[in-house]
């Protein structure tokens, strides 16, 4: 059973459908107790960093998510859900993220169109259960990015070279939408499920 945190932001239907297509049972819930007791947790999300954190705190979900990770159980953040794993974002100054990873979330600068919308490459920079050696081509839609650091497992280049996937032990994050990325996305979700026993 995979538990998807529902804090009222994002298209949860496609995450559920992708996981069901891989033969997994999925529970979508805003209930802190169910989140705390989950064996495998997915934190999805689209929208603004500050609004997402306000909702997570408003629903009393921060402590259950952190407890889940503390107990060594797997968590995958998708898109904004990955950014929320970091302490701060330029998008919402003064708002404290989940701070599971050190690092910063920055806005794209330079001359390219923003948001970064469309299909782009994820290039692995170290081995991770999420990717094979080739990486893959995934669908992105975001205006802010995570700077590369020691937790980066794959990068994408769009003006900047940024962290498109991060991992430290049981906590994973991807900036792109695997649930919207056809075969490469399903393969990544399958690897995550197999790695975590979901």
């Amino acid at each position: 059973m995979i538990t998807v945190v529902d804090y009222g932001m994002g298209n949860l239907r496609s995450v559920r459908r992708a996981l069901q297509n891989l033969g997994r049972d999925v529970l979508i819930t805003p209930d802190p107790a169910k989140v705390r007791d989950a064996s495998v947790l997915i934190l999805p999300g689209v929208g603004a960093f500050g609004e997402a954190i306000r909702r997570i705190d408003g629903l009393g979900l921060r402590a259950p998510i952190l407890d889940h990770v503390e107990h060594g159980r797997p968590l995958l953040g998708i898109c904004l859900g990955m950014q929320l794993l970091f302490p701060v974002s330029e998008e919402s100054p003064g708002v404290e993220g989940l701070s599971l990873f050190p690092g910063r979330v920055m806005r794209f600068r330079g001359s390219l169109p923003v948001p970064h919308v469309g299909w782009n490459d994820a290039t692995p920079v170290r081995s991770s259960p999420l990717f094979d050696k080739q990486g893959g081509c995934f669908y992105f839609v975001h205006s802010y990015y995570v700077e590369t650091s020691t937790t980066t497992v794959a990068t994408t280049t769009y003006g900047e070279t940024f962290a498109c996937a991060v991992q430290s032990e049981n906590v994973f994050g991807v900036q792109f939408h695997p649930e919207k990325s056809q075969n490469d996305g399903l393969a990544l979700l399958r690897r995550f499920c197999e790695e975590t026993g979901a």
Binding site: G10, N11, R13, S14, V46, E179, K180, S181, Q182, L186
Partner: peptide, 26 residues
């Protein structure tokens, strides 16, 4: 679909947006 979906036409409020996102639009 396993690719992104954009939905338009007749969307007049934030609630309409929410309805479409809940129905599976990205």
């Amino acid at each position: 679909l396993s690719i992104p979906l954009t939905v338009g036409g007749g969307i007049r409020s934030a609630n309409d947006v929410r309805d479409m996102l809940n129905a599976g639009a990205d």
